[in-house]
Structures are given as C-alpha cells and as structure tokens.
Design a binder for these strands. Sequence first.
DNA 1: CTGAAAGCGCTTACAG
DNA 2: CTGAAAGCGCTTACAG
Lengths: 339, 339
Amino acid sequence: MNSTIYDIAREAGVSIATVSRVFNNNPNVTEKTREKVLAIADDLGYHPKALAQSLARKKSKIITVIVPVISNYFFMEVLAGMQDKIAAFDYDLQILNVRDSDNLLEQTEHIMKQGWGEGYILISVHLEDKEWKSLDKYTLPIVLIDEYFSGFDTISVDSVEGAYTATNHLIDQGCKRIGMISANPLSKPSMDRIMGFKRALEDAGHMVNPEWIVTGDNMTRDGFVESNGYEAMMKMLENEQVPEACFCASDIQALGAIKAMRDKNTRIPLVAFDDLEFSEYVGLTTMRQPMYEMGQLAIERLINRIKHKEEDIRHTVFSPDLIIRSSTPEYSGYIDTSE
Amino acid sequence: MNSTIYDIAREAGVSIATVSRVFNNNPNVTEKTREKVLAIADDLGYHPKALAQSLARKKSKIITVIVPVISNYFFMEVLAGMQDKIAAFDYDLQILNVRDSDNLLEQTEHIMKQGWGEGYILISVHLEDKEWKSLDKYTLPIVLIDEYFSGFDTISVDSVEGAYTATNHLIDQGCKRIGMISANPLSKPSMDRIMGFKRALEDAGHMVNPEWIVTGDNMTRDGFVESNGYEAMMKMLENEQVPEACFCASDIQALGAIKAMRDKNTRIPLVAFDDLEFSEYVGLTTMRQPMYEMGQLAIERLINRIKHKEEDIRHTVFSPDLIIRSSTPEYSGYIDTSE
DNA sequence: CTGAAAGCGCTTACAG
DNA sequence: CTGAAAGCGCTTACAG
C-alpha cells in the first residue's frame, strides 16, 4: 500500500507515464501492458494517491461543506440530500465544521484558504454583507444555503412568508390571542419568523402582545433545541393571560413546548416550523422546509458553477408548505402528545 | 488567492524556504523578514495550500470518517461527539459516505486507497471478519464504532445486554406476554437485541412467542425508521392475542409504534433502545447508548494510534443504561403520546 | 503506443 | 538566520 507509481513502473518495466495512463483509463495503452500493470499494481496493493493526483491536476474532486455544528436536524436532512445527489457525480463530499462564535468569518476563510475543495457549500453560516464580500476575493465557487448574498448562488426558504402562513392558519381557526416561541431573536431565521408572525396578526387586526413572544434560556444552537421550547412554553403559560394558540419557531422547540403543556396539564393549538422526520409521528402541524431538496439543489448548482464559472448567479427561495396535523384544532381538536 | 509561495518569495526578495518557515512558525526567521513576508502574503491573499503541504509532509492532518448514510440519528450524535473532541487537536474531520449495499468492502477500500486521511473511523460499517482482515494490509490506523474485529480498535455497545435489561424491566412490572419490534433481523444490532430479548424471557420462565417478534415492511436504513415501527406495531396489535408490553429495537421505531397505538386507540408499555435527543420529550423509556461519548472516544483513540502505531489494540464495550420515563407503567402508568 | 521531462505547491535536511 | 536543491507522488504536453 505504500508503493508508488515508480514501484509499479519498475516492476512492469514501463515508464511511470504508462502506469499513470493505465489508471486514468487512457485508451493509448496496449491491452497487454495494461493487464501487466494492473496485475502488478494489484499485487503490490497500489492505487494512485488522491493527494498527489489533486496537486498535479490542480483539482481535487472534492466539494467542501461548511456547517456550524452538525448535530442539528436541519443540517442532517440537507446533508442527506447532498449525499444522495453527489453520488451521481465524480465528486466526494468533505464536511467541515465551524464553531458558532464571533470569528465565524475567520474560520470560514481559514477553511477556504486551505483549498481542499473545488467548491464550497455553506449551510446556515450567517455573515454580514461586507463579510460575504470579503470572501468574494477567493473567486471560488460558493453556494449558500439558508442565507442570502447577492454575489453567490443562494438557496433559502422564505421564513417571513412561512411564519405568516403559520400564524394565519391559527387565525383562521378563530384564535386572536396568539403567542410565539422564538429562538435567539438575533438570529436571522428567528427575526424573519417574528416578522412574519407580527405581520399576520397586524393584517388580521389582532393585537401583538410583546409579552407573548418568548424564548427559553438555553441558547445552544441559537435556541433551536428542545429545552428552549420547554422553557419558553413554561414562561408563556405562566402569563396572567395565557395565549389561545402558539406559533413556534421550530419543530425541535415544539417538542419541548408540548412537554411543557403536558407538565402544566394544559394544551393550546401549536404550529411549528421545519417538518422534521419525526414531526409526522408526534402529530405536529408545521411549515415544511424542503431540506432534502435544498441539499440536492445545492450540489447541482455548485457542480454547475464549477464547470461554468461565468454563468449568472441564481437565487432560489422556496416557499414552505403548511402541513396540517393534530397539534392544530381544525384536525383532531388537540395536541397529540399529552397525558 | 491563486498566488503561490513563489510569488510571495519574489515580492519579498527572499527564498521560498523562508516563506515556508514563516508560515510554519519556524523561529529561525528575523522578526523583520517575518513581518515583511506576512504583509505581502496578506496583500496577495496568500495562504499555503493544504494539498501541497500534505504531499510534502506526507501527512494530511485529516481524519476520515466513513458512514453508511449520514441521515441517521445515531450517526449524528456520534459525529457531534467527534467534532467537539477534534477541536482540541490539530486535525480536520472528513466525512465520506458509503452506500449500504453488497459492495461495502469495495467502497471502503476505495476510500482508503485514496489515502486522504491519516486515520479512519468507521461507523456502523458491518463487514465480516475476513473482510476486516483484508483491510489490515493497508496498515492504516482504524477505529471501528458499533462493530467488532480483533485486529482494530473497537468501540461498541452491548446490545444483547441492553435488550436483556430492557426486557427485564418490563418483566419486573409483572408483564409476561411481551412482544418485540425488531428492525432488519439480519442486521447485527437487531440480531443482538432479539437475542437479549429472548434470553430475558427464557430466564424469567416466560414464553417466547415468535409471532410477537415483528418488524415493518420499510427496510430503509435496515428498518430503523419511524414507519417501520408503525407498521410493526400495527401488525402486533392485529394479533389475536395482543402482547401486554413491547420492547422496541430503536427509539426512532418507537415513535412510529406510539403513533400506531394511538391510531388503534390502545397503548401498552414500551421500552426502546438509543435514547435520542428527542426521546426525553416524548417520554420514552429506553436503553441509553452513550453515542456522544463514543464519538469522543473514537477520536481520542484514533489520534493516539496515529501517534503510537504499536500500542496494544483496545476494545471498549459500553453498557447501555436504562432510562425510565413515562412510556413504561411504573412511572406514570402509560405512554405519553396519546389522544 | 510509449517515454523523458517539466510541473503541481509545498517542506526539509544540508550548507553556509 | 537564509538559500539552493531534492523530494513528496502524481499528470500531461511533447516527441518519437
């Protein structure tokens, strides 16, 4: 396994160029020598090292995916889509992490400078416009998922619209006093969802009670965790006047919120956001984000851009779909998960 | 960004060796020249390419993780542990996929031959002993998670014991007629869990009714999916004689099973296996696998082996812990998720 | 069809 | 402290 192209060439009595041709399926090799080379290579357990090939070819056949933390259901679904899609191409996926901290840009640049990938997909990496701009100088193919910057290809979901639709669904049921469980209010998805939520209430002429927009204390993963939803719902239920219904910024928080209601021995209609794999099984009404499809599209678009650098930049915004299940009254009357 | 070490050297009026030294923090450089080089490099947006460095150094500072499919909660938790752990070292994680098919060995070898990583972690890649042996010839540092082979470091959980404990918990509640929802009966974890299940029943002198060991039709991911659990529980409930309680091979299937019970308007005590992040929130009694810790340990062990190739091989087997929640009668009397 | 040679972008003894 | 040179393991025109 530690043999090189030289070892094979020597053993086979040919030049390294010929060995290289054999492994690159270059037709300009006699069947005879090809077989000989292959036999010897097999004997010595030889296989060209991707590292050396990449350097010589000046391309690595690698696509680098940058994610803040992998342990997030959203990323997982997106990654699944990417993996299934990339199987059709001659590329491998390299997944690298950045920590969600203040030097996000630095970490991202560090990865890009290393130059492993021919192209980069950034999932939920939230930077400011001028920071994005600074990445522009690397002139690398980049696709952003769950973010927007005019200079790169971009794939996202309209959170404002989704929140609007979700809230409207509650309003349609006749609810007026509607609360919201948000995540970190400074995070982009949270901001957008709060905006859509407020807009829907305003358009319907209902009051927006700031005390009913709550989040939990656990801000891990920007608050997109079960316990945050639990804490938030607990707070909400401790209000003097409890909302009639609730829009929740994510499915994962909704799980916690449901538990909180159960613990408090009460339940109000709930609409969440994401449609994770398990949501169907807990009967959660939610706004479906086409995560898997987004992952697939990202691969397609990136590989396309690697091949045609000059093509026009494209921005795709998906509209989330309302998936009605039993956590919303119209359907079965109440939350599934209860005791 | 497309500048090389030569460009910097020329601009700075030094040799490439000096530039290299600067970027490798070699102390043998005057502060003056160091600054000059750095300034110019910054100007030209230069950074050493990891590819070229790896080739010259003969080490890539990369650890390659091989997983069958990433969209699996078990992998996700394990990966999270690996990522958090690797932050402490000078390595990057490269995650590559293999499809769960008949040529698993081939795919794995293909990846190893490419030689990207200095070491490899294989999660839930199930091969036979002679296949593992054939990987031995690459003399690469390898750590197996969720598998066992005497020739490599290995980290796993005792599924037999876990199933035994889980079943015993049900027996302790006074249940005698106990059913089991298994996944693909040919998969290693399924086999082990069935074995532990049977053994517990036998040791307690209870009958093992083969008709009560069921699985669903959906064999995606070896049946470790919600819908499989749903189908399985549906079948189980359609038996003439319905079991008094059920052991379920995984949390993810338990989610489906719970929905099935709800749809059938019935519920029996349930113990599952895994303890996924959301399980707490659906009140699932389950056998906890220390997935996160397993991921952390794998990184530690692999990096250790990269440094000390000759150390003794170690096999770690974790014992899963019984986590009692409300899906099991002793606690609240019944399953949480119901209507 | 095949080989000699230059090149990919670095690192690292070796000399000085 | 610094440079010239060989080497890492390949690919790819260029000649023949």
